[in-house]
């Protein structure tokens, strides 16, 4: 078990390194695809009519003239030991973990970025609880009585749910509950530690619009999985030996049917934690996703790189947790 955990963590770290290297390479190469030279990249930090000497100085200080691998190595070094940039009259220090330094507004990326994390975590976690409970419950009840009225209606709603874009449901909810009937007007993020009630009140609409999409997806998946496991031989055996139906469903059926759901849940949650871009945009939540959108529209490369890496970290971390949970409950996993 211990060896398995070490192996998985090691693999996850390697994966993160590869992802960060590829991300770095893509953002290194993209401006060049679009026809920008290192000179032009440096010039955007200086202002109007830059002199060639100023450009050369910026290029050297920021390392823009170095080859790709050297720039990547400096970036990795910055993550663990911080970095200093000779830029302007005062040298800029970038503290550990140095996710980069935005020269556009002279700020370190990490403090700016980490401020946004609680908002996105609140959004993703609340929605996740909602959709797991409602989605899995609907799927199980549907699968136990296939072709019943409940099954037909809930699967119809679920099909509609996966077919609606989240920005449409979000905007519709806003129109209805925040404007037409202003039950939930004046929505803005309140920190959980400040006022848990306001925190929940102001996040309920984003939660619902995200959860509607995902619970539809999970209901369909759970139903399909349950239908398959409930026709397995071991379920018949469990019934034959006289087990109560409730235990057959929960201990034998649901437990097996949940395995693929948990995998997908890890991926979905990881993706959302890296920024629920569209939902944050619709509800003007200043989370990681809005940070990314802002950074991209400002063409602020260090910020884009930082937020991409954070998002990749969440995805890899969530998958790792799911893998380790599997190993805990299912002995076959850690033996293979």
């Amino acid at each position: 078990m211990f060896a398995y955990i070490i192996r998985r963590i090691f693999a996850a770290v390697i994966l993160l390194l590869v992802v960060s290297a590829v991300t770095f390479a893509i953002f290194f190469l993209l401006p060049r695809f679009a026809g920008e030279t290192a000179d032009q990249l440096a010039a955007q930090y200086i202002g109007k009519n830059p002199s060639p000497e100023a450009i050369a100085a910026v290029k050297q200080n920021l390392g823009l003239d170095q080859p790709l691998y050297a720039q990547y190595w400096n970036f990795l070094k910055g993550l663990v030991s911080g970095a200093e940039y000779k830029f302007g009259p005062e040298p800029a220090t970038c503290h550990v973990p140095c996710f980069g330094y935005s020269f556009k507004n002279h700020l370190e990326v990490w403090p700016e970025l980490s401020k946004r994390i609680p908002i996105t975590v609140s959004l993703a976690a609340g929605a996740a609880v909602l959709w797991l409970v409602s989605g899995v419950a609907t799927g199980v009840v549907s699968a136990l009585k296939p072709r019943s009225i409940f099954d037909r209606i809930s699967m119809g709603v679920a099909l509609a749910g996966v077919s609606l874009p989240v920005f449409f449901t979000g905007a519709l909810l806003l129109t209805l509950f925040s404007y037409e009937w202003p039950i939930l007007d004046n929505l803005q993020y309140v920190d959980f530690t400040d006022n848990p009630l306001m925190w929940a009140r102001n996040l309920i609409l984003p939660w619902i619009s995200l959860a509607f999409l995902y619970s539809a997806l999970y209901a369909r998946l759970t139903r399909a999985g349950m239908l398959e496991t409930m026709s397995e031989d071991y379920i018949r055996t469990a019934r034959a030996k006289g087990l109560v139906e409730r235990k057959v469903v929960t201990r034998h059926g649901l437990r097996a049917a949940l395995t693929p759901i948990v995998t997908i849940f890890g991926m979905d949650l990881g993706l959302l934690l890296g920024g629920a871009l569209i939902t944050e945009q619709v509800f003007s939540l200043q989370g990681v996703g809005q940070f990314a959108v802002q950074a991209i529209s400002d063409n602020d490369l260090p910020k884009i790189l930082g937020v991409t890496l954070l998002a990749a970290f969440f995805i890899v971390a969530c998958n790792l947790v799911v893998d380790l949970l599997y190993a805990l409950v299912d002995p076959r996993v850690r033996l293979s």
Binding site: L15, I26, L30, A34, G35, G274, G275, A292, N299, I304
Partner: peptide, 25 residues
């Protein structure tokens, strides 16, 4: 495939389409 699945797809899509907005290829 693992590496590709670990990429924040939407973020990448936005970054790539923005930087190629002006014209490329």
């Amino acid at each position: 495939m693992d590496v590709f699945l670990a990429f924040p797809l939407l973020l990448f899509a936005i970054a790539i389409s923005t930087s190629l907005q002006g014209g490329a290829f």
